[in-house]
Write a protein that binds this DNA or RNA. Sequence first.
DNA 1: TGTTTTCTTTCAGTTACATCA
DNA 2: GTTGATGTAACTGAAAGAAAA
Length: 334
Amino acid sequence: MELALSLGDNTKKQFSFLEMNSKINNPSASSTSTSDKDLGFCMGLDVAFGGHKSLSSSSSPSVEDEKKKPVPRAKLSDGIRVSSPVDPPLQLQLHFPNWLPENSPQGGRTLSGAAMVAEEEEEEEEAVPSMSVSPPDSVTSSFQLDFGIKSYGYERRSNKRDIDDEVERSASRASNEDNDEENGSTRKKLRLSKDQSAFLEDSFKEHSTLNPKQKIALAKQLNLRPRQVEVWFQNRRARTKLKQTEVDCEYLKRCCESLTEENRRLQKEVKELRTLKTSTPFYMQLPATTLTMCPSCERVATSAAQPATSAAHNLGLSTSSLIPVKPRPAKQVS
DNA sequence: TGTTTTCTTTCAGTTACATCA
DNA sequence: GTTGATGTAACTGAAAGAAAA
C-alpha cells in the first residue's frame, strides 16, 4: 500500500517570488506560517506517493546537452527556452550568479549551452532582488563563508551534479584565499538562516519539486548555490514523507486496535450465543416461520433465534445479529 | 520503427557536522 | 569541557524516464 500526500495545489505553475520576497523583506509577515502544521497535509491510502518525476516536469535542456548539441531539443519545460533551429550555436559570456565571489578566478569563463540559456533567462527576467538575509555574523550560508567541499573523486565528469560541484570547488578555492583554515579534507556544514528556511518553506508549499529555472531563481534570491536549493528540496521531501509515514502508521495502528477490540467483542458474543443455544430446549430451536420484534430494543429477529436473542437481551448482552427496523409496537409480523 | 546509449532527475540511505541538554 | 541525542546539510548509488544515436 502506498501513501498519499497532498501539499496544496500542485496545479500552480509559478512561484510567486515577488510576493515571497516581500515577505522576506518584511520578517513580521511570515515566519510563523512555515511550520509543518500549516502545510495542509492530507492523508489517503492506495494512492501513489510521489514517484519518480511524478511531480516534476523537468526535462529541460542540460548544460552538457547544450554543450554537445547546440541543436534544439524537442521538449521544453516550464518556459525554459532553447535555441530554435535558426538560432546560432550559443557562445555566451557567463554571468556568474551572486553566490559566487566577485573575485572568483573563474570570472569571465565562457560556456555554452543550456547553462547559458538559463543564465540568459535569468537576465531577461525582471531583476529580482537577491536575498541577503543572513546577519553579518551569521554562520549561515553565504558564499563568502568557508566552503569545505570534500574532494570525492568523481568518476564521471559529465552530469550536472558534477558541474555544480566543479563550480562549487572553484568557488571554494576562491573562498579559501580568504580562509586559510580550509584544507579541503572535511566538509563544512552550513546552516541556513531562519529567513532562508522560511523562504524555502514557502516555496515548497507551492511546489514540492523545482524545475531548473525555478531552482536557479530561488538560489539567486537566497544567495545560495543551486545545488543547495536542490538538496534542501530533496531533504524536505524526505522529511515530509517521513512525517506522513508516521501519521499513517499511527492511523493504521488505531485502526488495528479498533478492529482487534471489535473482533474480541464479537468472539465473546458468539461464544455466549452458542452457550445459550445449547442450553435452550430443542423445540425452541425450530426453524423460523415468523419474524418477531424484541419489545425492549425494537429489533426484528427470526423466531428460531428469538428465544436466544431475547435471553441475550435479558442478560444485557449485545445482539449484533439482529436487524434494526423502525420503531413499531411489539407484535408478531407474518 | 525499434533498440541501445546517454543523460537528467529523483529517491532512499547514509554520512558528517552543528547545536543543545 | 565532555558526551550523547537530535536535526539537517550534503553525499552516494540506483532506478526511472526522456532524448539522442
